[in-house]
Structure formats: structure tokens, C-alpha cells
């Protein structure tokens, strides 16, 4: 019984850290999107929108490298996309954190499951699926 309670509290600490990680990720990425959004409106306010037909090639910031390049030039659209990247990486960071917490708990079965999930996301990041 003692073992069970101890396990519960270890889980509890991890849950508090996890919650903070997720919250900080959302706040930071949303702030970046907001700042980028203000700049975007400032520069493009009067421009006309055209989203009637999807064109895969129209989007200039559709890879991590192009977003980082645009970010170094303070391009408003690239700043928004960077915020979106940070948002996408928040739950991914949560998976990585969980893997470490399972290592500490010596729960190797879940270390493997966590790595598997992380591997699937890395695979989809590898950019081979759409080109």
C-alpha cells in the first residue's frame, strides 16, 4: 500500500510540471502569433484576400527552414508561422518530457511507447510525405 501512495505522489509532481509546460507553451506561442498578427495587419491591411482556391505552391512559409529565414528578416507572416510552430511543438515537448519522467520511474514499457509516438511525429516532420 505504501508503494502505491508513493507512486501516486511521484505521478502528481510530474502532472504539475506537465501542466505548467503546456500552459507556458500556449501563452508564449499565442503571444508570438499576436505580435506577428499586428505587424501583418499594419503591412497588409488594405490588400485583398484570395483564399477561394487552394494552391500548395502559393504559401511561402511552409517549412521550418523557410519560416526561420523569414523570421530573421522580421517578416510578419513568418513571425505568425513561427508562433504556430511553437504551438505545434508544445504537445510534442510534452511527449518528450513524459519519456524522461517514465525513465525516472523506470517504466521502460512506457519509455518505448513514448518514443514510438515521438518517432511518428518526427517521421511526419521529415517532409517526405507531401513532396
Amino acid at each position: 500500500m505504501k508503494r502505491v501512495t508513493k507512486h501516486f505522489f511521484a505521478d502528481k509532481d510530474i502532472q504539475v510540471i506537465l501542466g505548467t509546460l503546456l500552459r507556458v507553451g500556449v501563452i508564449v506561442s499565442m503571444t508570438v502569433i499576436f505580435v506577428g498578427g499586428l505587424l501583418y495587419l499594419l503591412h497588409h491591411e488594405e490588400q485583398l484576400v484570395d483564399y477561394h482556391v487552394f494552391n500548395s505552391l502559393q504559401q511561402e512559409y511552409s517549412s521550418i527552414s523557410s519560416i526561420l529565414l523569414g523570421l530573421s528578416r522580421f517578416n510578419a507572416k513568418a513571425i505568425i508561422q513561427f508562433g504556430i510552430l511553437l504551438l505545434i511543438f508544445t504537445p510534442v515537448a510534452r511527449v518528450v518530457f513524459s519519456v524522461f519522467s517514465f525513465i525516472i520511474e523506470r517504466d521502460y514499457l512506457y519509455v518505448i511507447i513514448g518514443l514510438l509516438v515521438f518517432g511518428i511525429i518526427l517521421f511526419s516532420l521529415s517532409n517526405r510525405l507531401v513532396h
Partner: peptide
């Protein structure tokens, strides 16, 4: 995590437009 996995695919395909997503 589920949404992040497909968001990465959408991003690479140019489906995530900053003017709409923002």
C-alpha cells in the same frame, strides 16, 4: 499530440496560411 501530427503534414503542404490561422 494527435493534431500536431497532422498539422505538420498540413504545414508542409502549405495548408496553414498565416492570414487565416492567426
Amino acid at each position: 499530440v494527435t493534431a500536431a501530427a497532422s498539422a505538420v503534414v498540413y504545414l508542409h503542404r502549405g495548408q496553414i496560411d498565416p492570414g487565416i490561422a492567426m
